[in-house]
Design a binder for these strands. Structure first.
Lengths: 149, 149
DNA sequence: GCCGAGGTTGACGTTAACGTAAAGTGCTTG
DNA sequence: CAAGCACTTTACGTTAACGTCAACCTCGGC
C-alpha cells in the first residue's frame, strides 16, 4: 500500500560514512519488519551485529545484508538459500576453489530461478489484463462506470 | 534441472478437445507435484473436479487452473490470494458491481506486486553478476580456470 | 528514586503447505 | 481368484518463519 523509497541520502556535514550505526528498532522501522524478525535472522546466521554490552549495534554492512535478505525473501528464496549465498560471499577472500565452484553453481541456479520468474510474471501479467478487461466489460454492461485507473 | 515443455499438442484424429480428461496421477506427473498436493488444493477450494464414482476426473479447465495456481505459487502468492482471484473470476458472469470493484482492486494489488518483483529481480540480477565476477577473479587468482558458461 | 522507552533472552504458540502412514475400494491381468 | 496398481479418506506429523508472551536489564529525564 505505502511505497517506501529506500532513500540513501548523503548526510550533509560529511560524516565518515562508516561510523553510522543503528539500533534494532531503527532498522525494524526502516524496513517495516519487527525486531523479532531481525533477531530471528541473526539466529539463522544471516546477520552478526556487534554488541555494545548486551545490546545489538548494527552498521551499514548489516543494513545492506538485511536489505538483500528481504529482497531475496520477496523473490521467494528461503532463508537457508539466502544464507548460503551471503555466507559464501563473505568467505570468498580465503575461500578455496571448491567452495567458489560451488558458489558459481548456486548463482547459476538462482539465475535460472529469476529467469523462470520473469517468464511467469509476463504470463501472469497477461492473465491479469484478461481478467481485468472482462471485469470491466461486465461492469459497463451493468451500467456502472468502471474506475479509469 | 529438467525442463518440461508444457506441450499442448493438438491430438491428431480431431477429437473434440473438451472431452480429454486426466487422472490425478497424470496431472501430478505433468506438473511435477504429488497427488497429495492436488487434493490439498481442492480442499482449499482451488479445484473442483468431477467424480466418476469416488475417483476424481479432471478436465482441461481444471488443468489450466492448476497451472495458474502453480504459477502464482512460484511468484510467491499464497493459496488464499490465488483462490481470491480465481473464485471471483469464476463468479464474474453473475457477480454484482461491488464484487467486481473488489476484483479490480485485488488485480491492481497483484499488479503492483509484480512490478516490485520485476524491480527486485533486476537488482538481484546485478548482485549476482557482481558476486559472480568477484568469485571468478578469485578463482583465476588461484590459477584455476573458471567454467566459461 | 522511580518511570517509561527501548533493549535482552528464553520458551511456547501459530500458520501455511504440504508429507506420511493406515486402511479401505475397485479394476484388470496373469 | 489373487495380486498389484491406482485411487480414496482420515488423521496425525513436519518445517519455515516468525508472533506472542514473560521476566529481566539499563539508561536518560524529571
Amino acid at each position: 500500500m505505502t511505497q517506501r523509497t529506500e532513500s540513501d541520502a548523503a548526510q550533509p556535514g560529511g560524516l565518515p560514512r562508516q561510523r553510522r550505526t543503528f539500533s534494532i528498532g531503527e532498522l525494524a522501522k526502516m524496513f517495516e519488519v519487527t525486531p523479532r524478525t531481525i533477531r530471528f535472522y541473526e539466529q539463522e546466521g544471516l546477520l552478526a551485529p556487534e554488541r555494545r554490552g548486551q545490546t545489538r549495534v548494527y552498521r551499514e554492512k548489516d543494513r545492506v545484508r538485511l536489505k538483500l535478505t528481504l529482497r531475496g525473501k520477496r523473490l521467494g528464496f528461503s532463508l537457508a538459500e539466502i544464507r548460503e549465498v551471503v555466507m559464501m560471499y563473505d568467505a570468498m577472500p580465503d575461500g578455496n576453489a571448491r567452495q567458489l565452484q560451488r558458489l558459481l553453481e548456486i548463482l547459476a541456479d538462482k539465475r535460472a530461478n529469476l529467469e523462470r520468474q520473469l517468464e511467469d510474471i509476463r504470463l501472469m501479467h497477461r492473465e491479469l489484463d484478461d481478467v481485468e478487461s472482462r471485469a470491466r466489460e461486465v461492469l459497463s454492461g451493468l451500467g456502472v462506470e468502471p474506475p479509469k485507473h
